[in-house]
Amino acid sequence: MKHLQEKAQSKPLGESLIVQTAVRMMIPFIQLFGLYVIVHGHYSPGGGFQGGVVLGASFILMALAYDLQKTFGYISERTNAILGSTGALIYTGTAALCAVLGGYFLDYSALAKIIPMNPIDWRSMGIFLVEVGVGLAVMNIMVSLFWDISSGGKMDEGL
């Protein structure tokens, strides 16, 4: 523990070729699994929150094996904030659109006035839209939490 802390204070924890290669091979599968969990969320275990956490965990894994700069290459701080806000906006926007169109808040069958479809089908589609929003928001919040905690808010190299 003490040794680890001294090492962390003097320099980054060091890079390992084995860990980096393993992480590079695992990340696409983790992200595919996260997308699967989000898309199948409304009729199987999982959903927007869990899928979002799995997607965020893939970026956290990348930040652990490499450093924070490598993750900024894939998803910059600005993109992160915009995507997270977009996710929250999709969620509340879908809910509010239902209320504006004459239904209740989060009553997806009211959306049949925009695209004519069976109200029961719209209930299934509506929860899918909400879960995409939740997944985006959770993914970006998780990544941003790890960035901030691991670099002490400085957004430099990280651990």
Binding site: Q50, V53, L64, L145
Partner: peptide, 17 residues
């Protein structure tokens, strides 16, 4: 569903944080 949440958030991300 709860078990999935616990596995991802509890055992995965929160330990790292």
């Amino acid at each position: 569903d709860v078990a999935f949440t616990e596995a991802t958030v509890g055992a995965g991300v929160s330990t790292v944080l």
